[in-house]
Design a protein around this nucleic acid. Sequence first.
DNA 1: ATCTATTTTCCAACATAATGGATTTTTTAC
DNA 2: GTAAAAAATCCATTATGTTGGAAAATAGAT
Lengths: 197, 197
Amino acid sequence: MPTKRKSVPQIGDRIRDLRKEKSLTLDQLAALSGVSKSMLSQIERGQANPTFATLWNLTQSFGMDIHELLEGTPRGPEPDVVRIELVPGNLTPTMTSPDGSCVMRILSPVENAAVCEWYELRFEPGGVLRSAPHARGTREHLTVLAGSITVESAGARDSVITGGTARYPADCDHALINPGDCEALALLVVERLQGVQ
Amino acid sequence: MPTKRKSVPQIGDRIRDLRKEKSLTLDQLAALSGVSKSMLSQIERGQANPTFATLWNLTQSFGMDIHELLEGTPRGPEPDVVRIELVPGNLTPTMTSPDGSCVMRILSPVENAAVCEWYELRFEPGGVLRSAPHARGTREHLTVLAGSITVESAGARDSVITGGTARYPADCDHALINPGDCEALALLVVERLQGVQ
DNA sequence: ATCTATTTTCCAACATAATGGATTTTTTAC
DNA sequence: GTAAAAAATCCATTATGTTGGAAAATAGAT
């Protein structure tokens, strides 16, 4: 199975460096962090893999969060990415609307960073897909490949025919409806606002 | 001595939410992350405190780092945009391959922040779209809607039939070819790796 | 060099992380 | 409604995380 996971960062040397920078002994850091000096020694030497709670308490006693700890660690090797990954149609994950009138095939990779996801939507005649607000700043882009679809977002309402694209906010209640008497097919891209901290 | 450490965040509900958002069962996430489904269930219910390595692998399989898990949804200013923007099919920008055998309709907004772009591709029989390497880290995702398409990337070569999706590096020479004797239709998503300068 | 103090590592015991497989619960199909 | 399939939780086991205190190593003073 192809893995896209980066290797686990080695944090021991970084922790020892931080401790030395602050001129702390293992005993002192143990008192500050609530982690035993034995455990600290093992972590620094890479001989133990701390639990999340232990690591949290440890970084907090340095006055930092875990990601600040990780920023100073050497990168692991680049993951080996399979050259061409094939997802056959019958193994493509699907979701269905509550009343079954709309089937979504999830085309984006499941491990995608949550900036951009995309789906193929198939609506029965009269089919509806209603959604609650997504995260603030989220927008959707709907391109109709067959049939027509009515888009509702934030009180506005518009129809898109084959070949057309609608872009609208998805951080409010929104809905997609097939008003016609034949099946509709569409591509939906869900795009989250970037660069926001 | 009073401790200034913030209490350890509860991550179980957040992990379950993320899993549900991606429509994954515990079994599927276990396969993706390398963490047992028993352990995933315990983490989600707050019954176990994962080690750093376990949590790292888990967050990586969601395509995020640990701090993103801790942060929740990014916040930012409300976008000030037209409610529903319509781009009719006849006004959708197009590009054509040099020999005219492939027509691309640009479905993503032209002002996109170049992290994610998407196109509808239409190939004549025997049609070819060859591309030079994009920026480092760029990947492409091709879903075939009709016919079949052969994908070439970095010396690898694979065929995708209707309904299937191929994911491959686009930071090297790559090409898409319609080997059949009828028209092929596909969706192409070009995704640039974030955080790479 | 020796002696003392400090710091780190070792050790054994206990607690729990993590697992594979069984069982229970929930969902789906009819 | 029932039966089957899928998903989640339970259970027993193994491995390891974590500890307090002892032993070893290192640093500092003379």
